[in-house]
Design a protein around this nucleic acid. Sequence first.
DNA 1: CGCCCTTTTGAAGAAAATCAAGGGCAGTGG
DNA 2: CCACTGCCCTTGATTTTCTTCAAAAGGGCG
Lengths: 213, 213
Amino acid sequence: MQVLRSLPWTVNTVQKGRGVLHADASSADLYVLETGWAAHYSIRRDGTRRITGLLMPGDVCGERASSERRAGHGIVALTCCEIASVRSDRIEDASDYLRGFRHLLWQLKLVEEATLRVWMSVSRDAFEALAHLICELHARADAVGDVRDGRLRLPITQEQIGDALGITSVHTSRMVGKLRACGLADVFEGYVRIPNIAALHAACAFTPAYLGL
Amino acid sequence: MQVLRSLPWTVNTVQKGRGVLHADASSADLYVLETGWAAHYSIRRDGTRRITGLLMPGDVCGERASSERRAGHGIVALTCCEIASVRSDRIEDASDYLRGFRHLLWQLKLVEEATLRVWMSVSRDAFEALAHLICELHARADAVGDVRDGRLRLPITQEQIGDALGITSVHTSRMVGKLRACGLADVFEGYVRIPNIAALHAACAFTPAYLGL
DNA sequence: CGCCCTTTTGAAGAAAATCAAGGGCAGTGG
DNA sequence: CCACTGCCCTTGATTTTCTTCAAAAGGGCG
């Protein structure tokens, strides 16, 4: 991570609902989410949105295929965000670190791929899928010390959670209620409390290995 | 691609249903599917399988995160396959080509990622999803000259197609029948015939940009 | 206060799973 | 040659899951 610190970052604030990437972004530009939450998404023909990845503070994005900058795909701020970024030409300057830097990006890309495959293969039962998503967010937050007393920030709406699961906000609400009724997780006021993380893991067969933490 | 040709390949035959990767595979080993079809998959807790990627002749795989070699995830031969592979230590030998080689692998990884996001965001309507899959396979086959008279090989069962779409084989059969009834595509005897590819594209809003062809 | 956003709940309908059965076809072996 | 078996595809009937439509309640904020 020292590799990254040496780069000439510039920080931008992005309002909720706005795109995160520069309009004239190069496919090699690098972004790090400092505060707030963001998401990879695609817009379907019928106007609905599918979230294909969630970004929490500290997460890296960028380095997309240029083909992804087609209409309908991008990265959006789910809350107000602060984004640090480096233009690709400035990255080349840090050639001393280039080897470690590329290795780091490669590892991150492999974790991203593994996560995408896990998201695709999560049970199509919405209850288990929601439990699995909460397990993942818990594991990621825990890895950076953001879980206290089984409680972590979840500053996104149920509609956005539904977009990440591929279900409607109505059904998301029902599954959140069921999770609460089962005593597995309580989603409220921008937080989620998990009384017994082992029980939640068991409910959806969650194993965190794919996150590479 | 000349970069790849210079590597010391060894070719193995893998029987249908067997795993493609070496048992003692390193995460940096490289594989190329010479003949036959294979698939990335995950096994769910309930025993069902989700195919997260289809591999056709000429496709590259390998370079997975080590975390992906957990139970339940892998690459399986859907038909009898011939797989060419290079051990990672032999790749290092070809250091003359290392720069171009790494760049090529990076590009392939970006296409893989884009494809995963598209698969995730495809309409959850099974009819459109099936049409979209056939469009993708057509585009990939066409790019290497494997489409003749709107006809291309599809040597996999409807159950396997269903696993790739996340639906049952029964429902797959119904959607294949509907596609046939609509005159959009005819799946038969290991082939699929597409009378009017533009019409099929229109039926599922397919755009091939993400494939990076 | 009034408005917007979010969550919740109910009722009805659509999509897909499940359960079940039958048919075609290739390979196998009597 | 033909019965037998296994695999794949198809079709029907029923059930489950999720969507859609609708309404209402709560909270934050101008």
